[in-house]
Write a protein that binds this DNA or RNA. Structure first.
Lengths: 242, 242
DNA sequence: AAGTGGTCTAGACCACGTA
DNA sequence: ACGTGGTCTAGACCACTTG
């Protein structure tokens, strides 16, 4: 039964919040099935249509996935989702491929002021800082610096285990129970530093596309800061606006 | 009455196509009201719920706009829509403002190979090429080259009338009956040429963010190619991914 | 065969805007 | 007061998946 009941907020909205909360709290975890629409309707004392409307909203937000004849599931972070929603680099013919990646360094440090503020951490909190190069067809193209709060990812990269998968978001979900749900990206053009130039095999001063991404969980907590510097000689950042 | 009737395609989808077609054909033009849900339901011989579902889809695609108590309207190209859906440059604090713009040149030329192919024109078709500088708070920040097929915009900029509004999409709609519905953008980092440097008051070689945008109508016909070169010293390109 | 989501209907009541 | 969209219900039938 819904206790909130009357007034301004429509039932289906309340149910949407309720379902979202269950997922945030991990009562229902990624990949698992949720109760059927009819079952939820009975539990909540509303009609199936109302539950349906709530679920439809969450499906549009990529929180839930419907499978006809089977049921409704909490969305999963398979590589496809990463590719489709969070990866915007394509080659010059418009084809998306996830590059492979090699970790250069993975260190524990105190958060910089910028890291602390974007990840909403207290000053000097410990963070994990991963640096890696990403290659398309053996050509090094992107340099990434990934910052994570140590508290949430404490085991990551410990003991020299730098053998990270290149779809990190899958790892976050499976290993640390953290599902990335959305991301904010800021793009700028910058000049290749000496280090960029060496690692990407370019001239110093070559223009690079810098992508500063803050990745958020369902409840909008920032959990990853990722700064990518990308050569756009043979690739570009693709965005479609409606 | 719907003649397509039975089979695989759901009714609400057919209705969605039907409404889309009416708008594409300009039977209903931007800003005007469409018949009420009940009225459409009766005309089409379906229930209100089915019409409603079709309309909901189009509202989500920004094709229609609902106003409670008033009716459903074909979406309009007010400056807000441009700002919200098609303009991604913000200042370093994340604030969006549309810059003012000054036209440098507006000329009729034969389409380059690249222009012809992206605008789907026959080789050597005539195009209008507008070049302009855009300023934020008196600081020149973006250089734009806009290419339009002459056939659709024949009167544009004729007689030295370069006094174009800075929200061009509103002009396209009102003056030429062309509504921009979506856009594809490709972003790269490039070096400022001598000309860029002069116009933007920068050093030659400064990295610039190049945005190559193809703007499409509702029926996905490309009607504008716009190449912007943007200084990202005090601004960035903002994108949110879900 | 049973259970799930997907479509569609018919009708009630509410909130809002206009006249 | 009336017409509009917004919410909600109850129930029918279909399409798909699983046992």
């Amino acid at each position: 039964m819904l206790t909130i009941g009357n007034g301004a907020v429509p039932l289906y909205m309340q149910i949407k919040e309720l379902l979202t909360a269950k997922i945030s709290r991990k009562e229902w975890s990624p990949g698992s099935i949720i109760p059927s629409e009819l079952q939820l309707a009975q539990e909540l004392g509303v009609s199936q249509g109302t539950v349906r409307k709530a679920i439809t909203g969450l499906v549009e937000n990529n929180v839930l996935t419907r499978k006809q004849g089977r049921g409704t599931f909490v969305s999963n972070h398979d590589p496809d989702r990463t590719l489709f929603h969070f990866f915007h680099i394509t080659d010059n013919r418009g084809h998306k491929v996830i590059p492979d990646s090699r970790v250069l360094r993975c260190r524990r440090k105190q958060a910089s002021r910028m890291e602390a503020s974007t990840l909403q951490l207290a000053a000097k909190t410990n963070v994990i800082r991963i640096e890696r190069v990403r290659k398309f067809l053996a050509t090094p193209t992107m340099l990434e610096t990934i910052t994570l709060p140590e508290s949430r990812f404490s085991s990551l990269g410990k003991g020299g285990n730098y053998d990270l998968p290149n779809t990190l978001y899958e790892l976050y979900e499976k290993q640390y129970g953290i599902t990335i749900h959305s991301a904010d990206e800021k793009l700028r053009a910058v000049s290749a530093t000496k280090q960029d130039a060496t690692l990407l095999n370019l001239e110093v001063g070559t223009p690079l596309l810098e992508i500063e991404r803050v990745a958020l969980t369902l409840d909008k907590t920032p959990v990853e800061l990722r700064i990518s510097r990308c050569s756009t000689k043979n690739h570009y950042y693709q965005n479609t606006c409606f």
